[in-house]
Design a protein around this nucleic acid. Structure first.
Lengths: 154, 154
DNA sequence: GATGAAATAACCTCCTG
DNA sequence: CAGGAGGTTATTTCATC
């Protein structure tokens, strides 16, 4: 369903959505009108989830990243519900996955500084019981991709 | 430097950058022109890093997420350089951090399906020596935030 | 210094050839 | 696919507070 041009278009837009259609058209060797049509099709088909502004971590006051790996003994529906709610309420937790293996959950937490992790940790354990939480502080971001590989898209 | 309106504007745009200025203006009780000016100021001041299209993981063919936690014995400049290069080259690795603590690195990997993790793993260990790699498969995304908390911004 | 209203400019989209 | 008209949206100007 998608050809190389479509993938290229998606890749360009996921890196910079402010690109004028005319410029995208240039880069994929297409006329502006044809390119505009393709972009519309791609959006209608749901390839583009949404368009967002990526804020600057430094400027926005949360330059620090901590990953929290969580083990829990509780797996009741009630507990899970409370946990979900807590995750959703705490803004510093920007990403959360339920895992397989020796840890049950991973949280990505953004903070003004490392010491602030304690505040978030307390806010979390006040609401739910956790068996074990290991915090890993990010010292350096090697790749901060909002970009997905487009090679598998069809 | 920022007031409540500015934070609100940033929050709206980081959730949906397609919002017409007029609508953002409405939500913060401002005229379109005043709002447009504020957005410009915010961009000039560097609060907005960029604007991007977020692609649909399912549609784009990489619905599966795996977190790889890595320990390494090597810390020479050469090794680090090779590691960086590998990370940067492998598209399935969408995020990478250098950590403190019992693990040295964390990678977020996106894949067409779990079995494909092996392909990425082999591609990585072919290029660099790793002491230990633990893979944690995401069974469920509880929060997939591209959104930062704006409360700390000033 | 920041606002709102109106004028201007830029852009996208649709239509025609 | 190229070119241009028409409509929509954003930006700039200007007067005002």
């Amino acid at each position: 369903m998608l050809d190389e041009r479509d993938r290229r278009i998606l890749d360009l837009l996921q890196k910079d959505a402010t690109l004028p259609v005319a410029e995208v058209a240039d880069q994929v060797a297409l006329s502006a009108s044809a390119c505009s049509r393709r972009i519309q099709k791609l959006e209608e088909a749901g390839y583009v989830e949404r368009r967002i502004a990526v804020l600057d971590r430094e400027r926005i006051g949360v330059p620090t990243t901590v990953f929290a790996l969580i083990k829990t003994a509780h797996h009741s529906d009630d507990w899970i519900e409370s946990f979900r709610k807590a995750i959703s309420d705490i803004g510093e937790i920007v990403e959360a996955h339920r895992l397989t293996g020796s840890y049950d959950y991973i949280l990505k937490v953004v903070l003004p500084r490392v010491e602030h992790y304690d505040v978030v940790y307390r806010r979390l354990v006040k609401r739910i019981e956790l068996f074990d939480v290991s915090a890993f502080i990010s010292m350096e971001i090697l790749k901060s991709g909002h970009a997905l590989p487009v090679d598998y898209a069809e």
